[in-house]
Design a protein around this nucleic acid. Structure first.
Length: 276
DNA sequence: CTTACCTCCTGCCCGC
DNA sequence: TGCGGGCAGGAGGTAA
């Protein structure tokens, strides 16, 4: 499931692979992938545009097309492939963009959960309808301990639920939420209103440290990128607790437990991570 | 306003 | 072997 670091890797990889390429054709095989407008309009309007910039907001990718903006969310299983037209593709390829250099940009998504949007360009990125419930990107400097304390100190919500809630901080998903809770030595169900301003400073520090570490690990993917593999931004990153149920905590050796928090499978160390 | 639950999808794992 | 059931999961939507 691509989270912020994986999306960043995909965006940078595509920028490296495609740069300023023109889109000369578009086919959509599964209409629900297109969140706005309808698939036919999407195809008609994207053809003839040149990609002029590659950006990311939370887990969303943004492509500057000059007078329009193409926005994609890969949800859990989305991948992009840059391939030659004659290369075969399977039933999970739902969108194919023909490029001016003869190659194709193919969107592959096993569960069809991903979404693409095409909007008239706006100066204020946060005003796009698909970002209606999406807050500041995790690296946005407007996320400060003061802002977090002000926004959250009265809420009776679990720490992990806050980390996953894209309205507050955009980009963190289930994997890094577990890792961030571990770094905080906090039980994922710690109530956010129990955190002090100093805790929020620490939280922001760990969020950015962990996401940055993952982005750096993703750089390896860019260098070793080959079109056959597809670009999904995944890489080998040593996780401390996520998906480690039954294994020993790397710090104290206690068996990692798994519970459900905010409807998500959640792994944590019962010794290192205390409730507050 | 907040929370709980449903929806979208498919692959995979389980039990029979 | 093969089938059905259950589950996971980001984010939008709706009901309570």
């Amino acid at each position: 499931m691509p989270e912020l670091p994986e999306v960043e890797t995909v965006v940078r990889t595509l920028e490296h692979q495609l740069d300023r390429v023109m889109i000369t054709g578009c086919e959509v095989f599964w209409n629900n992938i297109i969140g706005y407008p309808d698939a036919a309009t999407f195809c008609r309007d994207i053809v003839g545009k040149t990609i002029q910039g590659y950006y990311r907001h939370g887990k969303y990718m943004r492509f500057d097309l000059g007078d329009m903006e193409w926005i994609c969310h890969m949800r859990m299983e989305g991948k992009f492939y840059v391939q030659q037209p004659q290369e075969p593709y399977d039933k999970h390829v739902h969108v194919i963009l023909q490029l001016s250099d003869g190659r194709q940009l193919r969107y592959h998504d096993t569960r069809k959960f991903g979404k693409m949007y095409l909007y008239e360009k706006r100066a204020d990125v946060s005003s796009y309808p698909c970002f209606k419930n999406i807050g500041y990107d995790a690296f946005d400097e407007r996320i400060t301990a003061e802002w977090m304390y002000h926004t959250l100190h009265k809420k009776k919500t679990a720490l992990k639920a806050v980390l996953l809630d894209q309205r507050y901080i955009a980009g963190i998903g289930n994997i890094y939420a577990d890792e961030i809770c571990f770094a905080m030595h906090m039980h994922p169900e710690t109530m956010i209103n129990h955190l002090r301003k100093k805790d929020f400073e620490e939280l922001i520090y760990h969020i950015r440290r962990i996401l940055n570490g993952a982005i750096r690990a993703g750089g390896t993917t860019i260098r070793s990128y080959t079109s056959q593999l597809g670009v999904d931004g995944r890489f080998q990153l040593k996780l401390k607790v996520h998906a480690k149920k039954g294994e020993a905590c790397p710090v104290c050796g206690t068996t990692i437990k798994k519970i459900v928090v905010a409807t998500r499978g959640t792994c944590f160390c019962p010794t290192c991570q205390r409730r507050r």
